[in-house]
Amino acid sequence: MSPGKDELARRIIPCLDVTEGRVVKGVQFVDLIDAGDPVEVAAAYNEQGADEVTFLDITASSDKREIILDVVRRTAETVFIPLTVGGGVRNLENIRDLLKAGADKVSINTAAVDRPEFVSEASKRFGSQCIVVAIDAKRTSGPDGSLAWEVYIHGGRTPTGIDVVQWAARMEEYGAGEFMLTSMDKDGTKDGYDIELTRTISDTVNIPIIASGGVGTLHHMYEGFVDGGASAVLAASIFHFKEYTVGEAKEYLQSRGVPMRL
């Protein structure tokens, strides 16, 4: 067809850590009946104009998966934007259950490192569009002393010795539809995303990157998109503790030339 410009909006994705069906640490919205209920919080972000919502299930016990499925089911009844669920996704059955409950994408982290073929099986069975590979990356030195990043698993506790750039290339080849790229160095610092990491991976692969870890200001989001080449940014505390609304973030970014859905 005829040539056209790129009108795709960049995405802002609030992320909720959920354990046993409750939002970890809660959120600070004045108008919520139950700020610990992920369904209600997701609905509030939906109203603010979030482009997607992500639940990260950190429930320790794997025999409590029914709880997150119930949360997903109830969310899908009220929230009509894409929903990603990560945490404890270990086999095809977990994915099927989540998609059937109403999730649109699942994110896979540790299970991909344990058995990379899981990602290709999952993308063949359910389509690349719903397979997000989550990569927890920590800075290290390459063999020649240059800047490199190492893949961590088990919620960032275990180093793997795997190089992030090589890992990302391999996961793209295996059918990942998107990367959620979290900087372990930046996570929790509010210093901004690891822009070099984001840019390096964005230039390596052709699938979208979600930048994660370290956002403290709206300018950090701008850097994630413009300098890092991210297609989406993930944010938690900056929204949960009402420093900014999603709408304010979007106004800020749009006014600086980043295309947003307003």
């Binding site: 539809g177 998107e178 052709n206 979208p208 297609s231 859905r261």
Partner: peptide
């Protein structure tokens, strides 16, 4: 076009 594929997100 060097744009990311899948085309994923909100577009007009």
């Amino acid at each position: 076009t060097r744009l990311k594929v899948p085309h994923m997100g909100w577009n007009r």
